[in-house]
Design a binder for these strands. Sequence first.
RNA 1: GCCGCCGUAGCUCAGUUAGGUAGAGCGGCUGGCUGUUAACCAGUCGGUCAUAGGUUCAAGUCCUAUCGGCGGCGCCA
Length: 424
Amino acid sequence: MPIQSILDGKYEDKSVAIRGWVYRKREGKQTIFLVVRDSTGVIQCTVKADSPAWSEAEKITIESSLTIEGTVKKDQRAPGGYEVSAEKLSVIGLADVFPISKDKSEEFLRDIRHLWLRSRRMNLVMKVRADVLEFTREFFKDQGFVEVSPPMFISAAVEGGSTLFGLKYFDQNLYLTQSSQLYLEILIYSLEKVYCIAPSFRAEKSRTIRHLTEYWHIEGEWPFADMNDLMQFEEELLAHVCKRAAEKCGKEFEELGADTSKVASVETPFPKITYTEAVERLKAKGIERKWGEDFGYDDEKALADEFGKPFFVYDYPTAIKAFYCKTYRNHPEVAMSADMLVPRIGEISTGGAREDDKDVLIKRIREMGLSEKDYDWYLDLRRYGTVPHVGFGMGLERLLTWMLDLENIIDSIPFPRTIRRFYP
RNA sequence: GCCGCCGUAGCUCAGUUAGGUAGAGCGGCUGGCUGUUAACCAGUCGGUCAUAGGUUCAAGUCCUAUCGGCGGCGCCA
């Protein structure tokens, strides 16, 4: 039975059988204490010198897999309050000396990530990650969205960026996607409200605690909507995920040393300021930014410190936004775009209205120095029943890093890929 | 792309200021211990001081180059 069910007190004074791995071993002349873990929790097992399990217990090592049969006893001396008095112990896989002990560095743990993933800490983070994915899908589904599966191999740049990973595709050159947005835009013409949770790849040589080269992108796209609809959807999505996490993941947050009150207190509507207001606020802080300049991380941090919670900056200058961003018809220098920012991490989401006028889009593609030919199918979407639409992309790992107050984004994903790390 | 920091035992580190016999704790192994809480006590094993070159009577320590890692900025989610 699951270890957690024993810790919940369901088997007091009853016979149980557990299976798992040795987490700690403490040896005395009369008693061997084995702390055993499974996916649900950890429990202390005692093996007495006169128990038939003694000889097996003596030779077992940390991280060996085993089964134990015994009797559950309530005992205040045991961590967790319950322990299993072992009567039978079978070693399944005897472990070599486990390299991870109490002294460990970030670097070492990254080198042996395949073993570090067994840790209590990573176990907890991965459970919260799974729950956050579930809460996200829950929200999209409630709002009538259809989950779709975009391609990872793509033939042309999504944003015309130089940050694409190229690869050999038989005898052609292809890229790994850096956003599924353009493909979601195709699907709104039939399914209307669509979303995906899929990897995005960025060949940016960033060395920070908030960048991965492969990350999971939560993207939504839907027609007949404007900027207000977009920001409202995004803030409600985040609020839903945070509220559900506060309800369901309290234990995980606590064990990870994260504060649930932060996510529990996320409420809509979020503060929203325009790019122009942001420039003014920065000016008031003594940070001079000319209108039209993009914000750096320090600028975002200064703004985020002021709010201390998630907020939006919207209506950015067209010049610093991608070609597909829709512009205000009476103010073409301003793009209908919105970034969601959180303290410490900065941007966790970017979204906006997409240009739906074929001629304006062609003009923008040319202005950005891109080739019209590469976007033929994208332009087709504007030729056949174009429709105003909006969409956004949110970084799952940035969201988790913020929610759980992780020191580094790499711990929000089991197998992080960074500029230097891709093993295992 | 720019800037900063780090590399000594399986692991965590001291030793680098001011060149002079390679150290500790943890882990392993051996023994001890009547209930431990990442146990404790004693003993013991364990080294290409990242690599290459240079200075010097003498280099872990100083100099040069290279390799590897971490972080900050830029860029981005």
